[in-house]
């Protein structure tokens, strides 16, 4: 992990309130793995903003974030050329993909971006991404570039109607997928975790929690995991954000 400066070289508005930045930074681009995150300093704020890495390029990386409060609204005003103070790459990403694995990649809402780099690297994958409504659909074209992609909305205003879990179940029943990777709201992860357990498919989920240090020192972002049949404490920033679904108490 490094504390370094990354320059914004591309800024896009994906949907109202959802932004994409490509940040030039050789150090982080070279070290980053799918599923890791960066911790971003915003002038005037005590805490950095932890944001997942969406794509990794040769000497730059991409983040996608949604404006949820004062910090992210300040970030949304940043423009190309801005030098950003970044700590990263942080946390543990997704397990490396074996060549014979068939992946189901499932994203919900703003939990979709951290899955893109994994989808890029998968030789055989089906992507299922779900959003509340049409105005929140992001990254469809990006995922399509790398393989089969199902887009669904809760209210049916765009593409197929239904929750991601519906299409996940259909996929599992119709094809022999060997692995699931998911990120999204907790209720969605809980359901996916249950499905993975029922069908005995290896499943990883990427978690989110309010953080302070981002490196495992302050213990702010605790989640509970089961290991060797015992309840244990883990921290999303250091032990995650990616966990084995069967280990996390959701």
């Amino acid at each position: 992990m490094f504390k370094t400066t990354a320059r914004i070289i591309k800024k896009d508005l994906l949907q109202r309130g959802i932004y994409s930045f490509v940040l030039e930074c050789d150090l982080i681009a070279k070290a980053a793995k799918p599923g890791q995150f960066v911790n971003i300093f915003i002038e005037g704020f005590t805490l950095r903003r932890p944001i997942s890495i969406c794509e990794i390029f040769e000497n730059s990386f991409r983040i996608v974030f949604s404006v949820v409060g004062k910090g992210t609204s300040k970030m949304a005003k940043w423009d190309v050329g801005k030098n950003v103070d970044v700590v990263g790459p942080l946390g543990n990403g997704f397990k490396k993909i074996d060549s014979n694995e068939k992946l189901l990649i499932v994203g919900g809402g703003i939990g979709t971006p951290p899955l893109l780099e994994l989808a890029k690297r998968a030789r055989s994958a089906r992507v299922i991404i779900g959003f509340k409504t049409k105005d929140l659909v992001i990254l469809e074209q990006d995922f399509l570039k790398h393989g089969e992609t199902i887009v669904c909305t809760d209210d049916g205003t765009y593409s197929q109607k239904g929750l991601v879990t519906k299409f996940l179940l259909e996929s599992i029943k119709s094809d022999d997928f060997t692995r699931i990777a998911a990120c999204g709201p907790k209720p969605m992860l809980k359901e996916i975790s249950k499905i993975a357990k029922n069908f005995k498919i290896f499943c990883e989920i990427s978690m989110e929690e309010r953080m302070a240090c981002g490196v495992g020192a302050c213990l702010g972002c605790q989640c509970i995991i089961y290991k060797e049949g015992k309840k244990q404490s883990a921290h999303v920033c250091k032990d995650g954000p990616v966990f084995k679904a069967q280990e996390v108490f959701l």
Binding site: L47, E209, R210
Partner: peptide, 17 residues
């Protein structure tokens, strides 16, 4: 084990834990 999450909240010029 400590307290349940969320354990962190930002405040003007500071934070709660």
């Amino acid at each position: 084990m400590g307290n349940l999450s969320p354990r962190i909240a930002e405040t003007p010029m500071g934070m709660l834990n």
